[in-house]
Write a protein that binds this DNA or RNA. Structure first.
Lengths: 310, 310
DNA sequence: GAAAGGTACGCAAACGATTGCCTGTCCGGA
DNA sequence: TCCGGACAGGCAATCGTTTGCGTACCTTTC
């Protein structure tokens, strides 16, 4: 047993011939070492939990994939845990993850509103959804940066009357971005930010409201691609031309929306896969006991310029 | 150790007082039994792999969630494995899953084209994406049934000139549904099924093509909600009223598309979560050595009637 | 030819649970 | 008083690895 273990793991001092023989025999018999037993000795499981407070959705997926990529480097598998926003369910899942002795946890959620810290004694990295505990390791998106990116772009192409249509005011995301839009646009912001919902329907209605109240604007900075798409549709229906009369921007770079829009949508990509990747790397560092170079990483968004502004 | 084990698991013969004492102490110390060690003895890991041949996407999510629900009943956790359609990656992931001694595998993919069977010696259930091996346990969607559902609905509301706009002909999904549309619609099918792409853009273009070639139709049966949405947009732009002049149906019941469409889209829901749930249940039966009541389950689609047809 | 030194391999403990079996204690009955 | 039986709980083997240490054998050198 000992010799086989050493041969397969390249440890100990064995003749090359012996190693080869063991490896070939293992191959022939289809033997693969049992990761549990190995983990039992090593004091690790080479497994982490991916805990999402909301259901899995469009935002979770790229993060999950990025994390999986980064963790696979450390031979780590990902166990899913979806709390469905239910506290009892979360407790139950955490218990299950603890019994499985996961090496660490990536915690995420649909909104960027902060969540209460978890009471666990293993490394935790927050991805996308921040923790109330500011000192907890986290990889976050730059909400304000996304807003800045699109507004500066609109200003750069000469727009001076910008309308801001965004999601519900109760979401931190909407508030932070609206504040940044106000700051960067300054005089160029037309009226007040219009808070509503993260839906196409709100985009449609917001344009109706804006036109009805006689606002004049040459750009709409929408809080999401879905809102932007509603905005684009209604502008077209009202006979306004995009981008000639009105330029439109979104946030998310959700291909289904941004590419199907007519014209295709200029938008801020939040680089969710990158957030996932960095989270995975950070957790890997923590699990393997390395010092973190930074506790808190903010992934800068990226501007994707398409036909709706140029 | 033995006594504690018996107390916590409710086995052996112990005084009730002893059990209570052990449980309370465990609670106080935050002790949770190590699932690995338990599995080592039990010969199981209470863990299954979720292997998706394509990346995770919109189709995978509901299936995954359904499966997670069903499996959580058996205290089973799900390990993700995303092959990204790369054979080498698949082999590597399978090796990792084998070394983790997962109790079983759920295999799925984005398309309903059949895939080659896996060479593994644990229970496998195919979900959504069938296997080439017809005898393999599987939970599938009823492609033809979805087509029948919408066509029968269109016939029932009195439409007699139905246009069929669908995805690429190389996808089994398009072919099977087109065949069923032809069979059920009979005389009522206008021209040939129009194969294209699973995109809004194709929906737009297909209507242009149909109108240009002088086809007359009072209904469009689209192969997906995305196509249907393109169809709806272009019909409106061409001055045709939906559903008065033309009724439109989709397939998928993808809320983002179906609810944002104007009018909201009548569509066939493939009940993906149900497919996931049934797959999970089936795998649980296999893992726990129970006889399967049926090797092959077909989940019937459900018609969701909305404004685009009534 | 014998001792010294080095290399390759085997042995056994340990990781953290479960479980069958054995033992000790207590009770009741003869 | 002694024995039998029932019940509670402790002991140790087991699952499949890793790893440090001991040992056998081979080589080299005087």
């Amino acid at each position: 047993m000992g010799t086989v273990s050493k041969a397969l793991n390249g440890t100990g001092s064995l003749r090359e011939e012996t190693r080869r023989h063991v490896r070939e025999t293992a191959e022939r018999l289809g033997f693969v070492a049992d990761a549990r037993a190995r983990g039992l000795v090593a004091g690790r499981t080479y497994t982490v939990g991916f805990l999402t407070t909301d259901s899995f959705g469009r935002f979770m997926l790229p993060i999950l994939m990025g994390a999986e990529d980064a963790l696979s480097v450390g031979q780590i598998a990902v166990i899913l845990a979806d709390t469905r926003d239910d506290h009892a369910r979360e407790q139950h899942l955490l218990r299950s993850l603890r019994s499985r002795r996961v090496d660490g946890l990536i915690v995420t959620g649909r909104t960027t509103d902060a969540r209460d810290p978890l009471d666990v004694d293993i490394p935790v990295v927050h991805a996308f959804a921040p923790s109330n505990d500011d000192s907890a390791p986290a990889v976050l998106t730059d909400e304000a940066g996304a807003a800045r990116l699109v507004v500066e772009h609109l200003l750069a192409i000469g727009r001076r009357r910008i309308l801001h249509v965004t999601g519900p005011e109760r979401h931190r995301s909407s508030r932070v971005r609206a504040e940044e839009v106000r700051r960067v646009a300054g005089e160029a912001l037309v009226g007040e930010p219009m808070f509503g919902a993260w839906s196409e329907e709100w985009g449609l209605r917001a344009i109706d409201l804006a036109l009805a109240s006689g606002l004049e604007f040459d750009a709409v900075c929408a809080g999401s691609d879905q809102i932007a798409r509603g905005v684009l549709d209604r502008l077209r229906e009202r006979g306004l031309s995009v981008p000639a009369d009105v330029a439109v921007t979104g946030v998310d770079n959700w291909d289904v929306m941004a590419l199907a829009a007519r014209p295709a949508l200029t938008t801020a990509d939040l680089c969710l896969a990158e957030i996932g990747r960095r989270s995975g790397e950070m957790l890997l560092d923590l699990v393997e006991g390395r010092e973190l170079s930074e506790q808190r990483v903010v992934v800068p968004p990226r501007l994707e310029v398409r036909g709706s502004t140029v």
